[in-house]
């Protein structure tokens, strides 16, 4: 009986194997909450080249760019999809219930996960897919970012209007920072001194200094800001405003909105940059497509259809 189960399980795993060899160029991975698919967009050919069935209502995404592994949170099936592009293996593992946002830390190969209904974050060792720690944070944790050099985890607690800062070594809470109303997204990059928070209900972005943990500024943007991409070349950030169909462009030197790209698409959500291809990629939830914008002149280049309800909450481009 046991061996039968084992055989079945192996068969189950093998059935997830697919062939990726040809598509390891510049690609964007789009989580689709309605179709339960992860769509793969080749940014060189500017084409949707593959759809992979993941779990239920996929939302968050993170990529191990060195080992070419994509992690997708499946909040309704309470698991994480781990797709190894080079080994062609798709596995599922548990990282707490209702997983939302993901952050992959290259230094220690850990995956950090927010658990929306559990008011916790989970930490998983991605070498063996084992849950190693659960940490209490605020109410309805949404976005997460880890400043690996500073050993700090930043989590937006949507229903507490705070950002929790947790130490990556001892998992102790360092600080709760008051931000705007309904903070959702948490983004940053090694090339900036700030953590960027999108406050959905106060229609603003909060800049937190990574080191001092002080709020430097709250900047008004469009309605329902969702995600942020940092352009390290120009020291500007792009903010998608879901209910305004727009992108606010903030110059970090003056900490002001310097431009609004209006009528981008309906419900723009996930946004990321490909420097290789000179592209800004935006997931348009209502339109069921993604749009490609020229990074230099910020003009719309192309719309590409996806399988349904694209969100791509997180960093979703692999170069």
């Amino acid at each position: 009986m046991l061996s039968q189960i084992r055989t079945f399980f192996l068969f189950f795993l093998i059935s997830f194997i697919f062939f990726f060899k040809s598509i390891l160029g510049d690609v964007a991975f789009i989580t689709n909450q309605e179709s339960n698919m992860l769509d793969i967009i080749d940014l060189t050919q500017k084409k949707n080249i593959k759809q992979i069935k993941v779990g239920e209502k996929p939302a968050g995404i993170a990529i191990d760019k060195i080992n070419k592994i994509v992690f997708v949170s499946n909040p309704e099936s309470n698991n994480i999809s781990k797709i190894n592009l080079e080994k062609n293996i798709h596995e599922f593992f548990f990282a707490g219930n209702s997983p939302m946002s993901l952050y992959y830390a290259h230094q220690n190969k850990l995956l950090y996960v927010t658990n929306w209904y559990e008011n916790k974050i989970s930490v998983v060792n991605t070498l063996n897919n084992k849950l190693i720690k659960s940490i209490d944070v605020g109410k309805s944790p949404a976005g997460i970012f880890v400043a690996e050099d500073l050993k700090r985890i930043f989590v937006a607690n949507k229903d507490d209007n705070t950002v929790s800062v947790v130490d990556t070594d001892d998992f102790k809470m360092l600080k709760n920072i008051h931000v705007g109303k309904a903070p959702y997204g948490v983004f940053s990059s090694p090339k900036t001194e700030y953590i960027f928070i999108t406050n959905v209900q106060s229609h603003s972005v909060t800049l937190i200094n990574k080191k001092t943990l002080k709020v430097e500024k709250e900047i008004k943007v469009g309605k329902w800001p969702y995600q942020i991409a940092h352009n390290k070349r120009k020291q500007i950030i792009y903010v998608t405003n879901q209910r305004d169909n727009s992108i606010s462009v903030i110059d970090l030197k003056v900490k002001k909105v310097i431009k609004t790209m209006s009528d981008i698409c309906e419900y723009p959500e996930g946004i990321d940059i490909s420097y290789n291809q000179n592209l800004i990629v935006v997931a348009c939830w209502f339109e069921d497509n993604i749009i490609l914008i020229d990074l230099n002149n910020e003009k719309l280049l192309k719309k590409i259809g996806v399988s349904g309800g694209p969100r791509s909450f997180g960093s979703f481009i692999l170069n």
Binding site: E34, E56, K57, A59, P75, N78, S98, W285, G309
Partner: peptide, 11 residues
């Protein structure tokens, strides 16, 4: 039913 609400659309 243990899951987070995902947004709905009607068109």
């Amino acid at each position: 039913d243990g899951h987070g609400p995902s947004r709905q659309k009607v068109n």
